[in-house]
């Protein structure tokens, strides 16, 4: 049994992002959630990422799943009659590196080293989310990343996720919105797109 909040393991890592496989099929953290992995150095290096993508695919790249439900009554029946499916499929999620903690101090920019393969990945606690959300300087990384999802979608999803741990959600959203208005000074349409998605 995995410890509390542990959701998966790093299977691909670079300076700017990492990919983790979930322990349970379909149990990837929601889009925009804050996750962390720890590099066990002498002074442990905690690395924070924002989930920007999740993929479920076959374990073997060449073997594509086939449709099985023609004679079944429900989706659950398929998994019940073919229990091996749970072992043949896997869910992965990708996270964009947005910060790290070293010597107890939180930095909202890229860590000096990438995570290691098989590093455990945890979903951050509410307290950690609140601490991380005290400054919005990480939004700049999200806005400038080249990702399969649009930056506007990712920023909006991240803010919606973070806002859940705050008592005064609308206050949080207004503060974040103001930060975005400054960052996107000359890009009115992008700003409008995000604001439309984070309206409380």
């Amino acid at each position: 049994m995995a410890e509390l909040g542990r959701v998966g393991e790093v299977i691909e890592a670079s300076t700017t992002e990492f990919v983790a496989q979930c322990y349970e099929l379909y149990q990837s953290p929601p889009l925009g959630s804050l996750v962390k992995t720890i590099l066990p150095l002498e002074e442990p290096l905690e690395m924070y990422g924002i989930v920007y993508n999740a993929v479920t695919s076959s374990l073997e790249p060449g073997r594509r799943p086939i449709a099985r439900g023609k004679d079944e009554t429900s989706e659950e029946e398929i998994y019940r009659s073919s229990p091996q499916l749970l072992k043949l499929l896997r869910t992965e999620f990708s996270a964009l590196m947005v910060g790290h903690r070293q010597n107890g101090k939180l930095y909202r920019y890229l860590p000096p080293k990438p995570p290691r393969i098989h590093g455990f990945v945890y979903l951050c606690s509410d307290d950690e989310v609140v601490e991380f959300g005290q400054s919005f300087s990480f939004l700049n990384i999200l806005l400038n990343a080249h990702l399969p999802v649009s930056a506007e979608e990712l920023v909006a999803a991240t803010l919606r996720q973070m806002s859940q741990v705050y008592d005064d959600r609308s206050r949080f959203m207004v503060t974040a919105g103001k930060e975005l208005a400054i960052l996107l000074g000359g890009e009115l349409n992008r700003l409008k797109a995000i604001l439309g998605r984070i309206k409380p």
Binding site: G177, G185, G186, L188, L191, K192
Partner: peptide, 26 residues
């Protein structure tokens, strides 16, 4: 205004959230 486009296509300020975000920034 920070961007002259804002005066050409004014945002929807009937929405209090947008209005509050833009005030003092854009």
């Amino acid at each position: 205004v920070i961007d002259p486009k804002l005066t050409l296509t004014p945002p929807d300020v009937t929405d209090p959230f947008t209005a509050e975000v833009l005030a003092g920034t854009s």
